[in-house]
Amino acid sequence: MTCATERQLVELATGDGDAATRTHVAGCDACAARLGALERDLTVLHTALSQEPVGVVVHRRAWLPVAAAAAMAAAVFLFTVVPGRTPAPVSVATAETQSEFGEQLATALFAEATFDTSDAGTEAWELETALNGGTLCGDGYTGDDCTVEVVLADYE
């Protein structure tokens, strides 16, 4: 057998190695030295990561209350002190406008297409996520940040 690859050595050091690699490393000084260096590194990593993180400034909370107070003061000023200020009307797309748009789109694309108005206005984030190439989680988030459902009964 030729010398072990880095991946094989990592698998060996983390308990997933195969017997052939183990046998080879036992009889090969070069591979044994590489495995030794890897195990030493893993020990250093384990030790370092078992301690407090180093290298982060943790003063950010000092300005947090100041920023919150400033934001609140600005809000109070805008909504109470400024005379005669009324909020601008906000347009919201309703199910009717969405279904109307859907019907127009369907007509433009297909000769005899129909648009199911019952779907209008529902789960827009699903469409947005799909269009952006994301993977859907159950709770509306995507990819690596999906949470695992925790049911107490599963751990009994």
Binding site: D144, D145, V148, Y155, E156
Partner: peptide, 22 residues
């Protein structure tokens, strides 16, 4: 809420991962 024995070690690990992801 637990009425029967629970593997709290595993439960805690899962809940921790979820909380960190949140």
């Amino acid at each position: 809420d637990a009425t029967t024995p629970v593997r709290w070690e595993a439960w805690l690990t899962t809940v921790t991962i979820n909380a960190c992801r949140d």
